[in-house]
Nucleic acid binder design. Sequence first.
DNA 1: CCGACCAAAGGAAGCGGTTCCAACATCTCA
DNA 2: TGAGATGTTGGAACCGCTTCCTTTGGTCGG
Lengths: 349, 349
Amino acid sequence: MTIAEVAKRAKVSISTVSRTVHRSGPVDPVTAERVWRAIEELDYHPNTAAQSLVSGRSRMLGLVVSDITNPFFPELIHGFQDVAFHHGYDVLVNSTNYDNSRTALCVRRMIDRKVDGVAIMTSELDRSLTDQLSSRKVPLVFLDVGKVGKGVSNIKVDYAQGIAQAVDHLRALNHTRIAFIGGPSSLKSARLRRDAFLNCLRERGVEAHPDLIEEGNHKIDGGLIAITRLLQRHHPPTAVLASNDLTAIGALRGTRQAGLRVPQDLSVVGFDDIDMAQFTEPPLTTVRLLRSELASLSCNALFQSIRGEMEGAEFPMGTHLIVRESTAKAAGRLVPLAATATESLGSEI
Amino acid sequence: MTIAEVAKRAKVSISTVSRTVHRSGPVDPVTAERVWRAIEELDYHPNTAAQSLVSGRSRMLGLVVSDITNPFFPELIHGFQDVAFHHGYDVLVNSTNYDNSRTALCVRRMIDRKVDGVAIMTSELDRSLTDQLSSRKVPLVFLDVGKVGKGVSNIKVDYAQGIAQAVDHLRALNHTRIAFIGGPSSLKSARLRRDAFLNCLRERGVEAHPDLIEEGNHKIDGGLIAITRLLQRHHPPTAVLASNDLTAIGALRGTRQAGLRVPQDLSVVGFDDIDMAQFTEPPLTTVRLLRSELASLSCNALFQSIRGEMEGAEFPMGTHLIVRESTAKAAGRLVPLAATATESLGSEI
DNA sequence: CCGACCAAAGGAAGCGGTTCCAACATCTCA
DNA sequence: TGAGATGTTGGAACCGCTTCCTTTGGTCGG
């Protein structure tokens, strides 16, 4: 089924067929009607490879994520694809497993495929790679990393906003020993979240106690291990803020394994607000980072770049606290302690 | 960067470049060396659209899933992409939201893109659509639905195996009132699971009590609602088998909301064994349907068809029970009942 | 010494479209 | 009535690559 066969059947030239299909030039309505009928009868669909070859574009978008297995990303992909699909675009998805070289390879292959743009929703990229990618002429959109430039945009998430809300929420509940379970420090987004937490405390005149900062892996098991260590501290925390919801879920489980109850004995706050968060036991108080917004923001940024409506820009994105049931008033004392009672709780969080 | 520029730099013809790149014809080693150097220096990558146009194939695979938001699928996609990636293939993923017409559209678009094969891992397809798709010349692999034919394969999951193990496990724990929360009955895989359960009971000489069969939606909220209804029955179940893990997680939560404990008051068994299952509270006893196996089975089936090594075949896939902590010996009586004590528990499950 | 054979390399025809440009018919207005 | 404007249509180049076929030049055997 080629355009030539349609042309023959409609008794016109292939140029005319092309013109009527794309409405890209004058065609007599009567002729057009004949062409459409031929197309219908033959069930003709243009060969996208040919179109791609001649036009240099493919009506495909690339989407690179760190870990498709983390529920955050499927929800993001879902939204991204929806937007793309409605524009008649297909999406080439790749999950890199936090592997920088794989990211480079993925993007390279996508570019070879002449994708019209690629969204790189991983934040473990090193600068040299982002620069290298930016130098290609393909519209790009990064998440948090990435220097805005010609055709390259960046979604800038305001982690501080939601984290401040979380910290204030916890402090209002009389929590003074608030721990933090971060993500892998190799991850830019994880560092940003941790730093936002640290800064937030500092702004409020308290210093984070190093004992109360743990590093997880942004997965459930990491959260479980981290909370276990935290609860074994001489002065365990009364509340914990996790770098993402998976980590928080691990913390929930670890707390229960330690024989403690959430939120009576320990308050837990997550980050992301994945769908699952409302169904944990207890439902998770968490900072919402709206995937659907992230998805449409990034996808639309790409489309704007593609249409040449924009040179590349920075898109701010807010976060805010969703209070559910995993946080409550701090208990007087988490576990009976043999330790001295002379410590100054107020200043070590 | 085109093949012509490489040819010019290496002072050979484009035919020679093509031949050395694909090792598809005799090239003098000395010449080849020159060509490779030119390729390197120019950082040449072939235009895949052009290759696709001339060869009629794209080195892309299509993967259609029902709901990327269900953790079952990301894990499947992950495995599928891994296999594809190592063969130098890219994957076009699409989530259809259980929408039949969208599935049709997706596959249509994939075929337009000349994908070399497509895996349709949704099971809500109606027969007319599968037949229509099968009639195209693209290798296809279905999950459960799908009639094997020239170039079309089918993964046949043996649901009965795992479900029988689950039922026997529960019966060994003295459970006689075993409920079942199914998926939407419009879903073939959901029907298969429910039927496997019903048959299993029948084989063991017991008849399922209609009161103990509920329909969920394969999501958490559906499981929660279903278990709530189940627990309000005159004779509530002492154990429940869910059609997938998400449903089981909902059941876990619903049970706790009802003030009951798992597994002391109610045993819960899931299906799929998603990663999350080992981290629920309590860890979920569930029937494992290995995504990685499903992924490699389907991806490899496609490759075999592509290479013409196979005409289309049926691939069997087993399931088996993973016992964790959400199941335990049946309690004598779930809740004090005012009801008659004359019912014959043995025959109504 | 010459024809046959063979390896290596180049030329050119497509793959299926888009698009620029020329050709042609009609129509308008001086 | 004829020149130019306008509206439709067809022809052909080109996108970048693969592949078939031809050419070239050297080697070998008779």
